[in-house]
Design a protein around this nucleic acid. Structure first.
Length: 312
DNA sequence: TGTCCACCTTT
DNA sequence: AAGGTGGAC
C-alpha cells in the first residue's frame, strides 16, 4: 500500500494570469484530456480548482485575482508545471507575430481569449490521447483515458484532501493514476483495451504499441526531429493521419507550425474566411500560408472561438 | 492532394 | 452525430 501524500500549500505561479474561462479553455478545451474541474471550496467559493495529471505528476491549479496558484502532493512539480504550461515561452510575442492587424476575425479571436496558450505535454501521452480522439467528443476521450489510467496505469500517489470533512479519495484523488506507458500498452490484449470504451481505436493503439515496442527509441527520436520529418514518421503509425499527427506535434512537441484541421477548423475557415467546400488538405495549406510559422497558435484561437461563439 | 464508407460507442 | 483513418474503388 502506497503511503498517503499531503498537498503542499498553495503557491503563486508568476508569468500567467488567465481568467477562469481562459484557464478552462487551455486545460480542458481539447489540447489535454486529463484535467478535471473541482467545485469551489469554502476558502475559494466562486472559482474552480483544476486537478491534472501528466507523466508522474499530479497538480492542482486555480485562478486568483492576482494570478494563478498551484499545489501538489509530490516533489519536482514546480519545474514540470512550468514546462507543461509553457511558462518558458513568450506567448505575447508569438501572438503579436500573428497577422491579426490585417485579419479582423483573428483579432476578434485573440481578444475573446486573452492569454490563451498551447500546452507542452509529454509526447507519448499526447499520442495516446489523440489516438483516442477520432469521432469522439472531449468528454468521451477523457472517459477513455481515465479508464486506461485507472485499470492499466500505475498509481501516481495517494493524495488526501487537506479538508478532513471531504473524503480522502474525493475529487482530488480521481486522477491519481498515471497513463500506461507505450511499453506497457504493448502487453495489454486488444480486448482489454476495448473494454476501456475505445471501440475501433483499440486496434490502432494495440498496433501502435506493437510498432513502438519493436522500435525502441523511435518515439523520442521523432519528438526531436523538425516538424515535417517528425510528421512524416508519425503518419506511419496505425491510426495516425494528418490531423492526429499535427495535434501530437502541436500539443506534445511544441511545433507551432503544425496546423491541425478538424471539423471545427473546416467550419471556422468556411464561415469566417469563405472557404466553403474546401477539403482538409486545402484548408491546411491555406492555414500555413495565411497564418505563417506560428499557425498552430492561430488555430487554437480560431478553434476556441468557433466552439464558444460559432454555434453548432 | 479523388471520393466513399466501415469502424465502436455514447450523447 | 460525434474534434479521423485506412482501405477500396
Amino acid at each position: 500500500m502506497a503511503q498517503k501524500n499531503h498537498w503542499s500549500d498553495w503557491q503563486p505561479l508568476p508569468g500567467w494570469n488567465p481568467s477562469s474561462d481562459v484557464l478552462r479553455e487551455t486545460l480542458d478545451g481539447g489540447q489535454s484530456f486529463r484535467w478535471t474541474p473541482d467545485a469551489g471550496t469554502t476558502a475559494n467559493p466562486a472559482r474552480e480548482i483544476w486537478t491534472g495529471t501528466w507523466s508522474t505528476h499530479l497538480v492542482q491549479v486555480r485562478p486568483q485575482p492576482d494570478g494563478l496558484a498551484w499545489r501538489s502532493p509530490l516533489p519536482a512539480a514546480a519545474p514540470a508545471l512550468h514546462r507543461y504550461l509553457g511558462l518558458d515561452t513568450d506567448w505575447s510575442a508569438h501572438t503579436d507575430a500573428l497577422p491579426w492587424r490585417s485579419d479582423p476575425h483573428l483579432a476578434r479571436c485573440l481578444a475573446a481569449f486573452p492569454g490563451l496558450r498551447l500546452l507542452r505535454q509529454p509526447f507519448g501521452e499526447t499520442l495516446l490521447g489523440f489516438l483516442c480522439s477520432a469521432t469522439k467528443q472531449i468528454v468521451q476521450i477523457k472517459q477513455m483515458l481515465a479508464l486506461l489510467a485507472e485499470r492499466h496505469g500505475p498509481l501516481v500517489c495517494r493524495a488526501g484532501s487537506p479538508n478532513p470533512a471531504k473524503a480522502a479519495f474525493g475529487d482530488a484523488a480521481l486522477q491519481c493514476h498515471q497513463l500506461p506507458t507505450w511499453s506497457h500498452l504493448a502487453s495489454i490484449p486488444e480486448k482489454d483495451l476495448r473494454a476501456c470504451q475505445l471501440g475501433f481505436r483499440a486496434r490502432y493503439i494495440a498496433e501502435t504499441a506493437q510498432f513502438l515496442a519493436a522500435h525502441p527509441g523511435w518515439l523520442d527520436e521523432t519528438e526531436r526531429l523538425p516538424y515535417a520529418a517528425a510528421k512524416t514518421r508519425l503518419i506511419q503509425l496505425p491510426g495516425v493521419g494528418e490531423k492526429v499527427a499535427d495535434c501530437v506535434l502541436l500539443f506534445g512537441a511544441g511545433k507551432l507550425e503544425a496546423f491541425p484541421v478538424d471539423t471545427w477548423m473546416l467550419k471556422s475557415l468556411a464561415r469566417r474566411y469563405g472557404l466553403d467546400g474546401w477539403k482538409p488538405a486545402q484548408v491546411a495549406h491555406f492555414g500555413r500560408t495565411h497564418f505563417g510559422p506560428i499557425a498552430g497558435l492561430a488555430q487554437q484561437y480560431l478553434f476556441s472561438w468557433e466552439r464558444k461563439f460559432g454555434g453548432r
